[in-house]
Amino acid sequence: MDTPEFRARLRAGAAGAFDQVYAHFHPPLYRYLARLSLDVSLAEELLQEVWLRFADRAHTLPDEIELGAWLFTVARNLYLSQRRREAVRRRWLRATPADASASGSQASPFEALCSSRAQLELEAGLAALPEHQREILILVAIEQLSPSQAARILEIEPAAARKRLMRARQLLAEHLQHERAPRSAKEVT
């Protein structure tokens, strides 16, 4: 998809090329945004904006820009802007902590799709992680991007991405251990 021939087709406005990019990147972008925002409808809303931006820029994107990294970066930036807007709105409304927690659930939107208890715990653990650690795990461990691709999307150095990934994995493991400890204690008694 990043070949010069394909990019030339895209620049020329070939509908087939657009459809190919859409079919390839729409599902992972959806999962990324849904797991990041913990909100499926917000993910769909942001996703529409991602594709409209792509439609605007596809003809002028230079060949050296990787399509996948560009799309994920746009998705991330839109999500961050939305979060900032939401924070300002809350400040203006002087929302109480109760209001703030009511507006967004802290559970993963995909918990209902988990087929085992381990998956459910993992999905919940992922949702409980701080956002910047959650997103690197989503990109690398779930969507199978390389750490250097993730670093480009997150606009950090590859070494920093690897460090963040390690820390996120550690935190998730600790969270799972913490969640399982009381349960196994209960099972023993």
Binding site: P27, F110, L113, L122, A141
Partner: peptide, 18 residues
């Protein structure tokens, strides 16, 4: 859970389509 096992489990999480 071992780090490798955790990694495998993460890659096996549901990959729903929109």
């Amino acid at each position: 859970m071992e780090p490798d096992e955790l990694w495998k489990e993460l890659s096996r999480l549901p990959r729903p389509e929109p």
